[in-house]
Amino acid sequence: MKPLQFISLLDIKARMGLKSEASKLYLSYLWWVLEPILWALAFFFVFEILLAFGRDLFFILCGKVPFLWFSKSVTNGSGSIVSGKSLINQTNVPKHFFPYETVQGILYKQWLVFLVLLGLAVIFGYAPTWHWLWLIPLIIVQYLVILAVTLLGALLVSYVRDVRILINMSMLFLMFTSGIFWDLSRISDPIKRDLLITWNPLAYLIDAYRKVIMYNTMYDVSHLLAVAGVFFGAIVLLHVIYHYKGQAIASRVINS
């Protein structure tokens, strides 16, 4: 399949997937926005009303929205090859198409969710400035992170389905360690904080989103470039693996 054809098919399949998904639900497209807001409200109830962490609702929202983008893409995308079994059985479609399709579908929802987030920022008193344009590199790098992790997850799950359980678990772990309902500055030991930022790019990204939207400050660009480089490299490597293992993956999926 040629790259252009791949992209064209990806686009149409992702959009039709969204249509199909929305048609199953009574509130169809409304859920795109409703879901992150409900999540944030739940967190707000626990961490502010019950535990009094001292953060407002928007602070949580600003962490939860990017995190949900990541976690939904990875959890759904990891099972994508396995659930594409009937199609895999019929045609030799490139296997990385399936994780791409999931990531793409969620990406199409995400721009709207980000718009709503920015709208809420204004309501919460964070005036929009040109500085917000620095969100664009963050979003692009987060997309690379999501793609790499989803491609890896889908590949592993197609070989060993048990991995799916581990992925779900690590999502919960990541949720607690990415600073969604607490600020990175709460970690008083700078070495530990650096370690977290190095090994959990999500913690770095979420902190950077907040810096831009809420505090009007700048994030560490060189760190962002490093993250981009590492994950781009990972994507290229995974593409190579997918290319050579296509039929092996199919045979694993069909015979499982």
Binding site: L9, M16, E21, S86, N89, V93
Partner: peptide, 19 residues
Amino acid sequence: LGFDVHLTGRDNAMLSAML
């Protein structure tokens, strides 16, 4: 076999052809 039952026949045929 590979149909998405929530999509129309037209959409499914379109996807099949593009695949």
